[in-house]
Computed example of a mutant assay.
Amino acid sequence: MDVASAWRLLLTTTTEKPLLEAASKVPALTLGFWIIKIAATTLGETGGDWVTMSLNLGYLVGTLIFLAAFVVLVSAQVRAYQFSAALYWATIVATTTLGTTLADFCDRSLGIGYPGGVAIIVALLVLSLAIWYRSEGTVSIESVNTPRVEWFYWTTILFSQTLGTALGDWVAGDDRGGLGLGFEVGAAIFGAALVVVGLLWLWRGVSRTALFWAAFVLTRPLGATLGDLLDKPVAQGGLHFSRLYASVILLVFIVLCVAFIPQRAANRSPSA
């Protein structure tokens, strides 16, 4: 390395990192990724409900608490020099818990019911994707290679998590305009939809970017219904585990997965 190159490297800040280095912070889409993702979404449901309901802090206070954690962790993720599985999944968990409390706040505290909450969150998700696409020309995860795009990515992740929670509650719940299908049926519906997405992934004619976001949204209501299945009363179709107990078990499972499931950084597509 010559002196000029060394000097440029020394002056490189966390907001001006080389594109390839920044892209390495996004994990590759492997089976392990989706296993941890579903566990994280389930933890988001049980953990969010524990803070807002079991601790009786309410949806607004819970949302503010998890919003603070979200901002701190995303900022750390953006400033990181390389991919860190622990930091990435901690940030994902922050989006799942915030998504749970934010969806509950829209559905319940605002008094607009599940259909109204779903409509608002769908609009926010579409708006986030539209702004991202207008700014960058793509919403592919392979394009997440600058701090600005990372904020687009994490904002879209948050809204997709929130939408997943709202969808899960709408399908399973029998109040506030819910469809009343129950948690088991809801989990089966979203699980079947994920199987369809997985099969479409094998078909090269379908956009991989669209399938990724579809899968990311669908894993959230699957996790939400699984979380509800764990902690809701037996009379409501749940197993009536303690929210705290269920959350601790899920957290330990996620930590073990992150520690022992091999993960690698995604490669940036040259066409992204």
Results as ranks from 00 to 15, higher is better:
V252T: 09
W89A: 01
T63C: 12
S5H: 13
A193K: 03
A172G: 05
S269Y: 12
I249M: 12
L127V: 10
V196K: 06
L202F: 11
A193C: 13
E136R: 10
L29Q: 14
M1L: 12
D169L: 05
K17I: 04
G62H: 07
G238H: 05
T52M: 15
R264P: 06
K37A: 12
L181Q: 06
T63F: 11
W89V: 05
G237E: 08
V196E: 03
R268M: 13
R8C: 03
L60W: 11
F190Y: 12
V206N: 06
V74N: 01
T14R: 14
E21K: 11
R8Q: 15
R108C: 04
K37Y: 13
A119S: 11
R243Q: 14
I112F: 09
L102D: 04
V72F: 13
A86Q: 14
P147M: 06
T225P: 06
I254P: 00
L43Q: 04
G223Q: 02
F212E: 00
G238E: 05
L194V: 07
E45W: 01
G137Q: 01
A76Y: 05
R208N: 02
T155K: 00
P233F: 08
S5D: 13
A272N: 03
V149R: 15
V144I: 15
V197C: 13
G164F: 00
W132E: 08
V122E: 07
A272H: 02
T138F: 00
A246E: 02
Y114K: 02
W213F: 07
A193P: 09
T162Q: 04
E184S: 14
A246M: 02
V195C: 06
L226C: 08
A193Y: 08
A123I: 10
R243E: 14
T30Q: 03
L20I: 15
Q77S: 10
P115M: 03
S207Q: 04
G99N: 06
P18D: 15
P115N: 07
N56M: 13
V26M: 07
L29N: 09
G238Q: 08
V122K: 05
T225H: 05
P270F: 14
T42R: 00
D231Y: 07
V139P: 00
V234M: 08
L167G: 01
S271W: 12
S54N: 13
I121Y: 04
W154Y: 05
K37T: 12
L20N: 12
R134M: 11
V3I: 15
L244A: 15
V197T: 06
L218K: 00
F216E: 00
L9D: 15
L98N: 04
A94Q: 05
L244I: 10
R204L: 09
R8M: 11
V118D: 05
K232R: 13
V252Q: 04
W7P: 11
M1T: 04
I120Y: 08
L20Y: 10
G111Q: 10
T95Q: 06
V149F: 11
D107P: 01
T95Y: 02
R204D: 12
A166Y: 02
P270W: 13
I157E: 01
L60N: 05
G198T: 03
E142N: 12
A103W: 01
L11Q: 14
A76D: 07
A192C: 10
W151I: 12
T155W: 01
L125V: 02
P27N: 05
Q82M: 11
W50D: 02
E136Y: 11
D175K: 09
W201C: 08
G238S: 09
N145R: 15
Y88F: 15
W132L: 02
F33Y: 14
H240C: 07
